[in-house]
């Protein structure tokens, strides 16, 4: 799978994002890391140019409530509805539901095992093969626990 790992906003802490890129690479994925401090527009352009299947958004600054729905909305507007969005970092439990309804399919917090992320992507590709919705602009309802 081609996966873009993105750091939106002013959050400059990317150790976690870098660990995830390694985990995904070792899981056999082609991972494109955007680097820190990207605007939603820049992330959208990278997704388009790289023809990505999935987008992982890392957020530790507390701006997830604003930035993640904004990115998801833009993705739907420009026709990236089939791209899978997942998130990680410091995202409190109480915000999970609203992010899921924005189209985020998985949220990984501190203490997540790397296999869990790999298994999520395996589940995604199996669902895609069966024609079930996984993309940011497709029917919500399914998300990874």
């Amino acid at each position: 799978m081609r996966v873009v790992i993105a750091k939106p906003g002013l959050d400059g802490h990317d150790r976690g994002a870098k660990v995830i890129t390694r985990v995904l690479r070792d899981g056999g994925h082609e991972v494109i890391y955007t680097g820190i401090r990207k605007t939603p527009e820049q992330i959208i352009n990278i997704l388009i140019d790289e023809d990505a299947t999935a987008l992982g958004i890392s957020s530790l600054s507390g701006a997830h409530e604003v930035l993640i729905p904004k990115i998801c909305d833009k993705m739907r507007t420009v026709g990236l509805s089939d791209v899978v969005v997942f998130a990680g970092g410091i995202i409190p439990e109480k915000d999970h539901e609203s992010l899921h309804s924005s189209g985020v399919r998985a949220i990984f917090g501190p203490g997540t095992h790397s296999e869990s992320i790999i298994n999520f992507l395996i589940e995604v590709s199996e669902r895609q093969k069966r024609g079930e919705p996984t993309g940011v602009g497709e029917d919500t309802g399914w998300h990874w626990d």
Partner: peptide, 15 residues
């Protein structure tokens, strides 16, 4: 380059 072991790749030139 792709990893010969996993087949995965880390593509970070654009940073």
């Amino acid at each position: 380059p792709s990893s010969p072991k996993s087949g995965g790749a880390l593509l970070a030139d654009r940073i």
